[in-house]
Nucleic acid binder design. Structure first.
Lengths: 356, 356
DNA sequence: GCACCGATTGTTAGCGCTAACAATCGCCGG
DNA sequence: CCGGCGATTGTTAGCGCTAACAATCGGTGC
């Protein structure tokens, strides 16, 4: 029934040799201790880098560990220390570039610090789903939780998590009093919009993300602010849902309006949909219409034309998140703490000066 | 130092009331037992659905669990049962649609069965990285491992994993004697190629994936087989690396060759690059050139033109993988077992009959 | 030469749970 | 009315580890 160490070809014919491990079992600390001629506690000390172990002893223990192929038992350690070395992540089940990148970056960072990352994907971002996912992680006794809650409904569910639970929110409500890491959407959107204005466009239209997403709202704010700062007219927002299809539909309307010469899409996929709508309508990009996206998906450089966009640094977000979370786990000052990562404008070929 | 249950506002002024849990500690099974007036073992039986518990007792225990907010301690359970309820996944650190989808689907499926999924992402698919990732999971004492090893170099590393370790390979070497789940690349590629031939094209060119990927090789085989079956000429393969950029570069060449009227791209991103190259060269799709991709990424319907492609069913792959792995974990007949999932052709607007 | 001190090592207890076995209870057949 | 049986419950041991304390050792200062 033991999973590992079964059928691994070890000869079990040795009868009572006191120096061998028990058959059918993975070696335990005691086996190492016996082989090294020390107590199990000394093995523990070597394993945990305790200073007061004689060099020679340390070597002997290490040799015994090597020889037996000993691996510490996490469960036993977790039981006695109360630390599971588990981090739970709550995220939407999405294959979108942004979320995937963030998740990947976080897993890499957390794993490098010796944690196991357990991702709980929710199908919907409603409060109940988020709360259930958080509860799931608490049932697993994770040491800390990272919640990616990009909507108010999702974020609100976190307010009911007891204060003692180490929790860091990503892309959540900046106004909530909690540990939070976000991309500075407003700055990114402002840069994108200004880039279009600087190219000579009178104003810039916006196809936004879903209105209930903080990211989307921030991008709308940044866009509006850039227009207002430039004294430009603020056209109505076309709301989207991040999908290429929504971009396409919004693009169909925008393509019919001759006064539209510049569009800032809330993400690259929507920009792709807009590109397609423009192409169908025979409006050339960037000849007649300039477009800027957001995210810098890897394919953006291969859209037709290559898309000017804004790139958030997901590695940085992941790093800040882990940092904040480890602080909470180790019981650092648990006050609110916010980290913001500023995105970068990536100019390509989808922006040009307007006609005449 | 206790993480959870700290600072959660519980009044700790109760002095010696025998019915309360110890302060600063999560309730344990014994606390539940005391409150319900039974032994801890009875609580354990209720928790594990053991049949021989009187209904009334069961209710009392459940009420006590509820009242205390008791959560079983996984570490303690793991320690005594030898089961960690952990599944380790080895995957390339990728934001590509295919891998992300598969990962998401697997996490969803495994979590639903009560497992925690730990993903170890490798930056490179070389043997050493894969081996290290597997070892990492074994260090964590996972109950089973899923390895996504789409190249020979990656797959070879699995041959050295002891037979007793429950291991399922996804997208690995079909010829290796192991538990394996794959998409039937050959069937998908054949369908795509035949679709183009059926539209009237004399032959079909192919921009492949990286030659050392099994998926890519399978798609090449399917493509070649379809051509041979139809008695069509087999043109040289343009090798790519899955990226839009590689597709673009291959497309630049193909676009200059007037005899090229149909291209099967090994994935949608490459198809996107080809589309762009064709557009730049003024070759209309599907007017002059027809293109089929593979993967059916969500944006494929919004490429210009909407891309005809082949859709693998990642949910099915994930389900088969989990199934196979759970069999191994529970010690079922551990012989080789292979599951194959057949992909589906999704016709859109990038294919038409050739000119004249 | 001896009490003492720090460095090193060993011993003991117990984390919270499940498995194995023991005990108890109510009821049946003879 | 008693032995026995199945259903239910309790008791004990121990999984492998770390924390706390105890013991030992070799030198130091006086």
């Amino acid at each position: 029934m033991t999973v590992a160490g079964y059928g691994d070809g070890r000869e079990s014919t040795v009868e009572e040799s006191s120096a061998t491990v028990r058959p059918g079992r993975e070696p335990a600390m005691n086996d190492v201790a016996r082989l090294a001629g020390v107590s199990h506690q000394t093995v523990s000390r070597v394993l945990n880098g305790h200073p007061n172990v004689r060099h020679q002893t340390r070597l002997r223990v290490r040799a015994a560990i090597e020889e037996l192929g000993y691996r510490p038992n996490r469960a036993a350690r977790a039981l006695v220390t109360g630390r599971s070395q588990l981090i739970g992540v709550v995220a939407q089940n999405s294959t979108l570039y942004g979320p995937s990148s963030l998740l990947g970056a976080f897993e890499l960072a957390a794993t490098a610090r010796g944690f196991v990352v357990s991702v709980r994907r929710v199908r919907e971002l409603d409060g109940a789903s988020i709360a259930a996912a958080v509860e799931h992680h608490r049932d697993q006794r994770v040491d800390g939780i990272v919640a990616i809650t990009p909507t108010a409904a999702a974020d609100a569910a976190l307010a009911r998590v007891p204060a003692g639970v180490p929790l860091v929110t990503v892309d959540g409500d900046p106004s909530r009093d909690a540990a939070l890491v976000t991309v500075d959407q407003e700055a990114g959107a402002r840069a994108a919009t200004r880039h279009l204005l600087d190219a000579g466009h009178r104003t810039v239209w916006h196809v936004s993300g879903p209105p209930d997403w903080f990211d989307a709202a921030g991008r709308v704010r940044g866009w509006r602010r850039a227009l207002e700062e430039a004294g430009a007219e603020v056209p109505p927002v076309s709301p989207g849902d991040w999908s290429a299809e929504a971009g396409y539909r919004a693009g169909q309307l925008l393509a019919r309006m001759p006064e539209v010469t510049a569009v800032f899409a809330a993400n690259d996929h929507q920009a792709l949909g807009i590109l397609r709508a423009m192409a169908e309508r025979g409006r050339s990009v960037p000849g007649e219409v300039s477009i800027v996206g957001f995210d810098d998906v890897p394919e953006a450089a291969f859209f037709t034309p290559p898309l000017t966009t804004v790139r958030p640094d997901f590695d940085a977000v992941a790093a800040r998140t882990l940092e904040l979370l480890l602080d909470r786990i180790s019981g650092e000052p648990a006050g609110p703490a916010t980290r913001t990562v500023t995105p970068l404008l990536v100019p390509r070929a989808s922006v040009a000066a307007p006609h005449a």
